[in-house]
Computed example of a mutant assay.
Amino acid sequence: MNIFRLAGDMTHLASIVVLLLKIHTIKSCAGISLKTQELYALVFAARYLDIFINFISLYNTIMKFIFLGSSFSIVWYMRRHKVVRRSYDKDQDTFRHVLLVLPCLLLALLIHERFTFREVMWSFSIYLEAVAILPQLVLLQRTRNIDNLTGQYVALLGAYRALYILNWIYRYFTEENFVHWITWISGLIQTLLYADFFYYYFQSWKNNERLHLPA
């Protein structure tokens, strides 16, 4: 494992910690899109179908359990916890995420590395992860004023993907036959979706101001 992969995993983990910290400590999910959290839960469920049958390393297995467990627990808290769910802004979080799921599934059936159930589900998870942040970004655009923990959560998610791109570049030049077009293109699209958010995030950080997105 190279430093970019490790940094990407730790940044991804940090984003989850920040979100769970907000939910457990403040008992609030204000500014968080349940639609995005449900998409991430679906992403990990589809990607880690091999969790009990394909052992790569202890690190790999632990990270799979962490991402699966945390994603489903966040969805549960936002849907079922009496205090937390009161802060969920259902009226603003109206992105029809099923419109993302179906095209990604169709694309996975058409473009995959091998036509097996697990490989199609893996491709589906890659395509879906690329666009899963869209409901969250739309919600932030609607609410405009964003609290620090929510801003940090989204920023860490974007940084995780950017670090994974560096990981792929590193592996391309250091490993033979390392070519994964599905992952590369999907990851690039996902990173580009964060571009506008990062511009305003760094502006607010530079000026020591609360993050505010324009209308």
Rank of each mutant, 00 (worst) to 15 (best):
E119D: 05
I133T: 06
Y59G: 04
C104K: 10
D50W: 01
L100R: 13
L128R: 14
W122M: 02
L137V: 01
F117G: 01
I133Q: 06
H112I: 00
V131L: 07
V101D: 07
R118T: 14
L107S: 15
I51S: 07
F72Q: 08
S73K: 01
S70G: 00
V101Q: 08
R79E: 07
R80F: 01
R114M: 02
L106F: 15
V75A: 01
L102F: 10
Y88H: 14
F72E: 10
M78P: 09
Y88F: 12
S57T: 12
H81W: 00
T61V: 02
I51M: 08
I133C: 08
I74M: 08
L109F: 09
A132M: 03
L107K: 14
V101A: 07
V83Y: 01
R86M: 12
R96L: 11
N60K: 11
L58P: 07
D91A: 15
V83H: 04
I126P: 09
L139I: 11
S87V: 10
F124M: 07
V131I: 07
T116R: 09
K64C: 00
D89F: 09
S70L: 01
M121A: 12
Q141M: 10
S71W: 01
I133L: 00
I111N: 06
R96P: 15
Y88W: 15
R80K: 15
S70A: 08
T116M: 05
R85M: 10
I66P: 01
I133P: 07
K90C: 08
W76E: 05
Y59N: 02
I126A: 03
C104W: 03
L110A: 11
N54F: 06
D91Y: 12
V84C: 15
K64F: 03
E113V: 01
R85Q: 14
V101M: 13
L140Q: 08
N60D: 15
L100I: 11
I66M: 00
M121S: 11
E129M: 05
Q141G: 09
F55K: 11
R114F: 05
S123D: 14
Y127L: 09
P103G: 05
A132N: 10
V101E: 05
V131E: 08
V120I: 15
V120M: 10
S70F: 04
W122F: 07
T61G: 02
I53N: 13
M63I: 05
L139D: 04
T116C: 00
I74P: 06
S73V: 03
L58Y: 12
W76C: 02
Y127R: 14
S123G: 05
N60R: 11
P135D: 13
M121Y: 04
Y77R: 12
L107T: 14
Y127C: 09
F95H: 05
L128P: 00
Q92H: 15
E129I: 02
I66A: 04
L128V: 12
G69V: 12
Y77E: 09
S57R: 13
I66R: 08
A132Q: 12
M63N: 00
F72W: 15
H81D: 15
D89L: 13
D93H: 11
Q141R: 13
F117A: 11
E119M: 04
F124V: 07
R96T: 08
